Computed example of a mutant assay.
Amino acid sequence: MKLLLIFAVCLAAARAYNVPDLVPRYVGMPVLANKGPNGRITNGQKAAASQFPYQVGLSIKLGVLSSSWCGASLISSNWVLTAAHCTVDAKSIIVYLGATVRTSPEVKYTVSKSDIVVHGDYNKRTLKNDISLIKIPSTSFTNQIKAVKLPAISKTYSTYVGDEVVASGWGLTSDKANSVSNSLNYAYLQIIPNTVCAKTYTSLIVKSSNICVSTPMGTSTCQGDSGGPLVLVSSGVQVGLTSFGAEDGCQAGHPAAFTRVTSYLDWIKENTGVSY
């Protein structure tokens, strides 16, 4: 019921702005393994072991009978970065580290609500400030568990327009899928100007704190990928985390929207001490 209410609030807000219905890219549980040989982020590829050691999976308990699945990234030995819409109603979260097969992590922690830091100005209606942090026990790095790099704090930042990025996660592999993938998948994408993204969602939704990518040939993030990392191919630096798309489908060709990490570096440092 809570999942339905969250979707209803977001969809109602989008209709009020006369834009395509926004869908936060998480998915309800229970989830079943996608056993097909080509399981992937829509039109992406299957990840190899240790290819994305910063990738984190989140099994989120929302109530007695309701839960959801999201992605996240490891940004230090004891902090995880994800989307606020994934964690804002969480009662507890199981954090999966070092997994390529979703159900077989190297390390798994259960954290309580008190370990979650949701951005104080997160807006459920517009998904503005869609970012949160999760504190976990200090974790040793291995070949399969490593922190992603964040941009260095600066007075000015690149827009990254035109840069190639890679998104990863266990999200739905097609618009017809009804469960997240059991295999970690990834897709190469290209960052587009916010003005182009706003033609789909309007400037009321797309803010400077968002970053968007094109989704050619139906290649995109999808439900279940929420909170997962968007990383520059050239440098391995995380510049976004999966936030929302349009309701008419992950393969419909609309831009996919992310939370822009450079807009929140000071907030991350203030809450975790992590900076570059």
Rank of each mutant, 00 (worst) to 15 (best):
I153A: 10
T156V: 11
A167T: 12
R125M: 09
L62V: 06
V161H: 05
L62N: 03
S77R: 14
G162T: 10
R125C: 06
S168G: 04
G98M: 04
N143K: 15
L62Q: 04
S77Y: 01
I94P: 00
Y54R: 07
V166P: 01
Y96K: 10
V161R: 09
Y54L: 10
S67T: 05
V64W: 04
A99G: 07
I60N: 03
A99H: 15
I145V: 15
D115A: 12
S73R: 00
L62T: 01
I134K: 00
T82K: 04
A152T: 14
K155Y: 02
Y122L: 12
S132T: 12
V64Q: 14
G120A: 13
A83L: 06
G120Y: 03
L62M: 09
T110C: 02
S168D: 07
Q51D: 05
C70T: 08
Y109W: 05
S77M: 02
I94Y: 08
S76W: 04
V95G: 00
Y160S: 02
R125Y: 04
L65E: 10
L81H: 03
I60F: 02
S50Y: 12
S138F: 03
I94C: 06
S154P: 09
L133Q: 07
R102P: 03
V107G: 02
S114T: 13
V107R: 14
S158L: 04
V95P: 01
P137D: 06
T159S: 15
S59F: 05
S76Q: 05
K113H: 13
T100N: 14
H119S: 05
S104I: 11
S104P: 03
T103W: 05
Y160K: 04
L127C: 03
I75K: 11
V101P: 08
G120M: 08
N143C: 01
I94A: 13
S140E: 13
V148C: 10
K135W: 10
S77H: 08
L74V: 02
A147V: 08
I145H: 07
L97K: 07
V56I: 15
L127K: 05
S92F: 01
D89P: 01
R125Q: 12
T156L: 06
Y109V: 06
S132N: 03
G169W: 12
G71R: 02
S77V: 02
K108Y: 00
S104Y: 01
K146Q: 15
Q51E: 15
V117M: 08
T142S: 15
V64S: 12
K128G: 10
